[in-house]
């Protein structure tokens, strides 16, 4: 694993989708207003732009945090796969105020030095489609099915996008913020 390679490649990849702002690199050591939902604040600041952040590991638990477009995530996973990282988890976050769903991919390195990378993708809530990582990491199969269960996110190209943890006839997605219980 080469940290520098990963950071360079991911940075280039995440910047690709935004030709007008090629280098969106914020300073990590500031506070933590990068990716949170600013619901309380009267005037929410600009939502986070796609790009790579190097975070304070001790505070946040990850080293590198990349936000990218939906069609870049497979390439991003391939970069991490080539460097020998493993996919630890996939999950979603429902940013209902912004009418967006976020898919979060956690990667870690098991070969020695601790290195954690998180990829995030924001997709619109009413058109929640994202390509599957199943071909890069087979472990994505179950994680994506679980995320589909909970958020109704459609992982395009997934071989078996059925309910995993919820009953097979369930038509609700409990972790969406507008889920009102059964």
């Amino acid at each position: 694993m080469n940290k520098a390679t990963i950071i360079t490649e991911l940075r280039a990849l995440a910047a690709e989708g935004m030709p007008d702002e090629p280098e969106v690199v914020e300073t990590p050591a500031s506070e933590e207003p990068e990716e949170g939902a600013k619901k309380k604040k009267p005037a929410p600041p600009e939502p986070r732009k796609n790009g790579l952040l190097e975070l304070d590991y001790v505070r946040r638990g990850v080293h590198v945090d990349v936000q990218m477009a939906a069609d870049q995530v497979v390439r991003g996973a391939e970069i991490l796969d080539a460097e020998g990282l493993q996919l630890e988890a996939i999950t979603g976050v429902d940013w209902i105020k912004e009418n967006e769903l976020e898919v979060v991919y956690d990667f870690s390195y098991t070969g020695g030095e601790c290195f954690r990378v998180v990829l995030r993708v924001r997709i619109p809530r009413d058109e929640a489609n994202i390509p599957t990582l199943n071909d890069v990491f087979p472990s994505a199969n179950w994680h994506e099915r679980e995320t589909y269960d909970f958020f109704g996110i459609n992982f395009e190209g997934h071989p078996q996008l059925e309910n995993l943890l919820l009953p097979e006839d369930s038509d609700f997605h409990p972790l969406l913020k507008d889920f009102k219980g059964l």
Partner: peptide, 24 residues
Amino acid sequence: AIGDYYHAVEAARGTFAIRAVSDG
């Protein structure tokens, strides 16, 4: 504080990790 946090520990069966997102 607002933000998301990740923490992993070694449980008896492997890596147990929590990703918590806080909105303050």
